[in-house]
Write a protein that binds this DNA or RNA. Structure first.
Length: 597
RNA sequence: GCCGGCGUAGCUCAGUGGUAGAGCAGCCGAUUCGUAAUCGGCAGGUCGAGAGUUCAAAUCUCUCCGCCGGCUCCA
């Protein structure tokens, strides 16, 4: 695999990794340790199932895995056997022994063993890399290393899950059985890790969403979420904020139809490049398609008028509902759906304005993610196989994106071949509760659509020119962004986007009218209160408001009705004591204005 | 789509061939209470769907549907 980077040698490693525990803060040390655990797992599998063939076994983040080709596959009970065998290998405490061999020796050895996947890997190794084997007892693996010093150093580990994975990530290849596990030098660290994963699962938006009455998913519409009252309030608040920011940044707002004739999609190139993901329908004998992207509709709007360079950059935004038929196995709650609302925008400009405009969008993204306290990382995706346009156009577009990133001083990762079919892109990725990353914002530089749709503008020279355009989203999709926000906050939204901001809790039935009056005053003041009129004890209603993750609770009893003051409790903090209505409202308004978490 | 797992009440789950269960939520009643669960009662199920094996299937077999994890990181 010529394009695959060799793992870096841990900074403290000479011959082998002797003190993983003492250097655990070093990511390369953790990877080496888990990589060795993967090696031990492979050794255990070969002992128990000698006919299993080896794939590869790297460490990734907190885990390791190894892929095997085993007829009939593994079952969960096999994991127990493998774990037991691994313990044995750990107890036997075999040293890891490195051996450098020639390509011929390696090939001969793995061919004889029938390890055809290893043979394929050896064939693809670049010529200048030494080929190394690692022995532990009677097990040998092709491996660049490094490893820990001996199998006995792997003190605590656990096999986590079983999965299918195509050999080398391509669905054209056979599917191997992948076993995931994790390993730590201290049993307590393993327990802590497992606890953390359990805790993270409780933040899952698919559990919290229905529980907090935000949205639901139904078999009758796979990949098409249903929005409930409170979820829609959240949605609209995000949209309000989005509109406010976009007005400030000089965007116009438009809306284009969700269904357009098939002919348009031929013209745009989507028919040739995106057909498998589109929904079609014939209406009055005319073939139509639900839009998978907003751009062609946007192009039609652009072409309504002649445009001058003086209007540029022309920024046109649209909350556009798109439909994409994603593979059923890839659907995931709100994070991957088949119909979603993109906070899209198209920016038209002269080619020489491209870099500055990209930088402007980077600033916008940063501003909006910051408002939610979200961490993100950036990736640059380059030309895919199935793409339109000339090499020169792709190079110019990619260069502009890279220049903007460099000028902004941003760290980014390159994703070769992952761009859109019409242009390269910068992607903004956010993490979910389990640490998986999801693309939200994207900035795509496009020379193709203007060409396809023959867009023009009149330049300073009075002649017609071809504009370039940026396609961009910030939230990415409202659905996905809300899903990630639910996980980020574990459902406990900051005041400014909390669907219910204040729960008004009367103590006994005779306080209902007073409580209702307080709720309506809060409502008039522009807040979002909700009355809990149930005939229950205060403790019960407090508990239920806390579980609904409402930021503030106001308890109304005889004392409040007599004094006219409010008894305020804050979510997670407890009783704040008494305050006047005006002070409470001012405090909340202030919180909302600063978008404090 | 593919690989593996799972599918019992609204939710969390127990029930491995012999009369479908619990807690929470819901409803009804009592209670009118001061900052994270008041008490009692009632109701709730084609055991995901269909077919098969059997005297008998939630339980065994097959097909389908849905959900969960993975299929990006790489010797």
């Amino acid at each position: 695999m010529a394009d695959e980077a060799q793992p870096e040698k841990p900074s403290n490693l000479e011959e082998c990794l002797s003190d993983p525990k003492g250097n655990w803060q070093d990511e390369a040390v953790r990877d080496t340790y888990r990589h060795s655990a993967a090696h031990i797992m492979a050794a255990a599998v070969k002992r128990l199932y000698p006919h299993a063939k080896l794939g590869i076994g790297p460490a990734i983040e907190d885990r390791f895995y190894y892929d095997f080709d085993i007829p009939g596959g593994f079952g969960p009970e096999d994991l127990d056997h493998i774990e037991a065998e691994m313990r044995k290998i750990v107890r036997e405490d075999h040293p890891f022994v490195r051996q450098e061999v020639t390509r011929e020796q390696a090939l001969e050895m793995f061919e004889r063993a029938g390890e055809n996947y290893k043979v394929e890997l050896i064939h693809d190794l670049p010529g200048d890399v030494p080929i190394t084997l690692y022995h532990s007892g009677d097990f040998v693996d092709l491996c660049a290393g490094p490893h820990i010093c001996s199998t006995g150093q792997v003190k605590s580990f656990k096999l986590l899950s079983l999965a299918g994975a195509y050999w080398r990530g391509s669905e054209k290849n056979p599917m191997l059985q992948r076993i995931y596990g994790t390993a730590f030098p201290e049993p307590e660290w393993l327990d802590e890790y497992l606890c953390r994963v359990e805790e993270a699962k409780k933040r899952d938006h698919r559990v919290l969403g229905p529980q907090l009455d935000l949205f639901s998913l139904h078999d009758e519409g796979r990949g098409f979420p249903f929005w409930h009252h409170k979820g829609l309030i959240l949605w609209q608040l995000l949209e309000d904020y989005w509109r406010e920011v976009h007005r400030k940044h000089g965007y116009q707002l438009v809306r284009t139809p969700i269904m357009l004739t098939e002919e348009l999609w031929h013209r745009s190139g989507h028919w040739d490049h995106y057909r498998e993901n589109m929904y079609f329908s014939v209406i009055d004998d005319v073939p139509h398609a639900l839009k998978p992207m907003n751009c062609p509709g946007g192009m039609l709007l652009y072409k309504m008028n002649l445009h001058s360079y003086r209007e540029f950059p022309l920024k046109v935004a649209e909350m556009g509902i798109v439909h994409r038929h994603e593979l059923s196995g890839t659907l995931h709650g709100l994070l991957r759906v088949r119909s979603f609302t993109q906070d899209d925008a198209h920016i038209y400009m002269m080619p020489e304005q491209l870099k500055d405009e990209i930088m402007g969008v980077i600033d916008l993204d940063d501003e909006m993610y910051r408002a939610f306290g979200l961490d993100y990382h950036v990736e640059l995706s380059t030309r895919p196989e199935n793409s339109m346009g000339t090499d020169e156009q792709w190079e110019r577009a990619t260069a502009a994106l890279e220049a903007a990133l460099r000028e902004k001083g941003m760290d980014y990762k390159v994703n070769p071949g992952d761009g859109a079919f019409y242009g390269p892109k910068i992607d903004f990725h956010l993490r979910d509760s389990l640490g998986r990353t999801w693309q939200c914002g994207t900035i795509q530089a496009d020379f193709q659509m203007p060409e396809r749709f023959e867009l023009t503008y009149i330049g300073p020279d009075g002649a017609e020119h071809r504009p370039v355009m940026i396609h961009r989203v910030v939230y990415g999709a409202m659905e996905r962004f809300i899903g990630l926000l639910i996980e980020e906050y574990a459902g406990a939204f900051p005041l400014w986007i909390a669907p219910v901001q204040v729960k008004v809790i009367p103590i006994a039935d005779r306080h209902l009218d007073g409580a209702r009056a307080i709720a309506s005053q809060l409502e008039t003041a522009g807040l979002r209160p909700e009355l809990d009129p149930r005939n229950e004890k205060v403790g019960f209603k407090i508990r239920s408001a806390e579980m609904e993750k409402v930021p503030y609770m106001v308890v109304v009893g005889d004392r409040e009705i007599a004094s006219g003051q409010l008894s305020v409790r804050q979510r997670g903090r407890g009783d704040l004591g008494k305050m006047a209505m005006e002070d409470f409202v001012a405090r909340l308004k202030d919180d909302v204005a600063t978008k404090a978490r």
